[in-house]
Design a protein around this nucleic acid. Structure first.
Lengths: 337, 337
DNA sequence: TTGAAAGCGCTACCAG
DNA sequence: CTGGTAGCGCTTTCAA
């Protein structure tokens, strides 16, 4: 089924059919009707690949995420897609599972699709990726990683500032033993997030004992990390999680071990995903405005909004703390077991 | 950047470059090397649209889901994608938000993309959709809705049997006032799920009072539905939720209203998503094997596995109950408030 | 083992 | 307002 068959059936040329299908309002109403009739009768749907090839633009923007299962990424996707749709674009996603190799595969897939723009929302990185992307001249926006460049915009949340707020808050509450639970790719010497935690503790809360531990991102990962942490013998008075999703897993393990939150141990998350309000107790967390990120991402890819496209632009978002019930004063004495 | 440029740079014809890129092992090693070198130096990535157009196959399978935010759908997607990848396919998803119009839009988008197969995993339906899809001859698989047909396979879980198990179980526990909380599209006279509940109650638990209520799918929807239910004055001894995701929202509202689970009211979900183990208390639920669904879905789309493709095939999965801590015996007397 | 060239289905430009 | 037609970038015969 193709244009030609439709054209034949409607008794016009393929050019005319194309015009009708694209609403090029130069077509006489009567012929437009004929064409539409043929289209309907033949159950015809234009081949998007041919359209993209001939037209030169894909009307598609790509998004790469580390873990779409984590609502954080999904929320960003949702606003990005909403925004894109309003402007006539589709968005197509690829997941990396925090694996740099999958990141590269995903990016190349998007290049192959000749996306009109690419949003890379991941925690992992690959050396040379920026280079590769710059060469393609595809408008890109990176969240959390990467460096601003000619065609690359950068959005980042001042994660460090967020951690500072949490640490200060916990310190003021009298906490003396802190733990940071991350996921693998948010840990290690390369990780801005772990560094932020470590440096903040030594600067704002000297004398406080601390430890960091990591497993996968997610419910199971958080739980496993918490288990490892506790098995190590360290007894934190407060646990700071790299994100809410992981924190919910931690919460479960604490419950399992008979540790009450926040009575025995305080717990904080990051992101302020919906789930953080729905667990018990609701999580004290740091809000990261996913909708704003999604909107900014689209805007910085948008070809018409030149204002956003100042090359090499870097946008920084300041995160806000959200106080809920998972944090409280440190217990004065070790709990009697 | 295109084949021709690469060919020129490598000093060969475009045909040869194409052969190299497609691993058609007829190419002499030395020329293959030349080509690969040129490809790398030019940072060349084949245009997938052109490839699809020329080759006639998209190497892509589509999936339509009602709500990718609900882990149920995401889990199906995950195994479907894993399966697809192993066989050299990409999968691209579209969300409907339970809206029949978006369903149709999504399906047409997939047709436009000339997907090699389409998995429709939704609760809503559109009359004529089956017809439309049948005409395209695209291999399809429907989960939960739709009817088996020539190129359409059907996978369904015996939801009714699941509901029966839950109702019987609750009835045996002495529950006398049941509520069913659904989401909009799983309710109404058209809904198999609501009917399953209603009919099961009158058959297996005559004399039991019951009520049904619905809001959106998800955390907020579940909470709102619970609020409405309770505001209506009805005091269920047990609440059956259409799925776990919604149940977690219900859990929150019950807590808010000072109702303890399962002491004051029992609660059950459906699906057995990971989250159902992580909430407090862990949810009694009915397992629906998403991985099996994902695998079956791919298998029934797979062109080589003819065995699966018995036209008009219907696959039924029997769900199993999973007992956890959110259910218990009905309280003997109305709780003192 | 390689090259030339005919499409794949559609858009867009140029005539009329 | 409509038709003819030259590509878009790649795959795939058919010859060489």
């Amino acid at each position: 089924m193709n244009l030609e068959e439709v054209a034949k059936k409607a008794g016009v040329s393929t050019a005319t059919v194309s015009r009708v299908l694209n609403n090029l309002s130069v077509v006489k109403n009567s012929t437009r009707a004929k064409v539409l009739k043929a289209v309907a009768e033949l159950n015809y749907y234009p081949n998007l690949h041919a359209r993209t090839l001939a037209g030169g633009k894909s009307h598609t923007i790509g998004m790469i995420a580390s873990n779409m299962e984590n609502p954080f990424f999904f929320d960003v996707f949702k606003t990005l897609e909403a925004e894109a749709r309003t402007h006539g674009y589709e968005v197509v996603v690829a997941n990396t599972d925090y694996d740099p190799e999958q990141l590269v595969r995903g990016v190349r897939l998007m290049i192959g699709r000749r996306v009109a723009g690419l949003a890379v929302v991941v925690s992992e990185m690959d050396p040379g990726l920026i280079e590769e992307l710059t060469a393609t001249r595809i408008p890109c926006v990176f969240y959390d990683v990467g460096a601003a460049r000619q065609n690359i915009t950068n959005i980042r949340v001042d994660y460090r500032r967020g951690v500072e707020k949490v640490v200060e808050y916990l310190h003021d509450l009298g906490h003396t033993r802190l733990a940071f639970i991350g996921h693998h790719s948010a840990l290690g010497p390369t990780s801005e997030r772990e560094r932020a935690f470590v440096e903040t503790v030594s600067r704002y809360a000297p004398g406080v004992e601390w430890r960091t531990v990591a497993d996968r991102d997610g419910l199971d990962g958080g739980r496993q990390a918490a288990r490892n942490l506790l098995n190590s013998g360290f007894r934190p008075t407060a646990i700071i999680c790299v994100n809410d999703f992981t924190a919910v897993g931690v919460l479960r393990e604490l419950r399992e071990q008979g540790l009450r939150v926040p009575t025995d141990v305080s717990l904080t998350g990051f992101d302020n995903i919906k789930l953080s309000e729905y667990c018990d107790p609701p999580l004290t967390t740091v809000d990261i405005p996913r909708d704003q990120i999604g909107r900014l991402a689209f805007a910085s890819l948008s070809p018409d909004k030149e204002r956003m496209r100042a090359p090499g632009r870097e946008l920084v978002i300041e995160p806000q703390m959200v106080l809920r019930d998972s944090t409280g004063p440190a217990q004065k004495k070790p709990r009697v077991r």
